[in-house]
Amino acid sequence: MIEVRELRVSYGGRVVADVPELDVGAGECVAIVGESGSGKSTTLLALLGLLPDAEVSGRVTVCGVDVLTAPPRRLRELRGARAALVIQSPQAALAPSTRLGVLMRRALRLHGREATDAAMAEAMRAVLLDPELLRRYPHEISGGQAQRFAIALAIALGAEVVLADEPTSALDVTVQAEVVAVLRGLLTERGLALLLVSHDLALVSTIADRVLVMKDGAVVESGPAATVLATPAHPYTRELLEALP
């Protein structure tokens, strides 16, 4: 679903992300871990063609779309429906004076999908939310509910790929557990491809199949999550693991 080769993102000649190879298949979760400034979020945004001011080279294919050469219209189709972006605090991105149900209905129509009450309710239940919440305004729901609503939107739109940037770092741990359970459900029950960007190695170890460790824009280590986190080969990965409180 995601195939990246020799991706290089730079600003004014300064390379901020250099990813030789990254593949995410259906039903698979790949995590990019690293600290602030490692280039992990930049990589994720590059996959959706969301870095208009950067120089981007290499080859990026998401759901069969060649992201770096596709015309804007094809990119919009890809971003809106087939590849969903889940960010750290979605609440700020939800129009404050619009009920969640109206938001979801509009998004579905915009992408030419049928917006039936039943389909919307089903998407809400898939993320363990009461469909009644569709009547609420964004400020009337919690951070964890907003995050799951963002995932419900992706499900309703029939997303095949979910790109999640620190989706649980702003949440309490008990709420985080619920969002992670929902994300796991996307993998196992719906066969979505999940690219997860996170600084939390412990969290990543419980959900990711494979891991890329990034530092200062470069991938310093990659491989199966169980191997990389149990027997890290790179000193930086070891440092990250030892720093876990």
Binding site: L128, D130, S142, G144, Q145, D172, V173, T174, V175, Q176, A177, E178, V180, A181, V182, R184, D200, L201, A202, L203, S205, T206, I207, A226, L229, A230, L241, L244
Partner: peptide, 22 residues
């Protein structure tokens, strides 16, 4: 207990979701 068990552990099982935090 719920707080403690919700913290992910390196290489541990995924934390259990209670479905009741709301």
């Amino acid at each position: 207990r719920a707080l403690r068990d919700a913290v992910p552990r390196l290489g541990g099982p995924p934390p259990e979701a209670s479905g009741r935090t709301e």
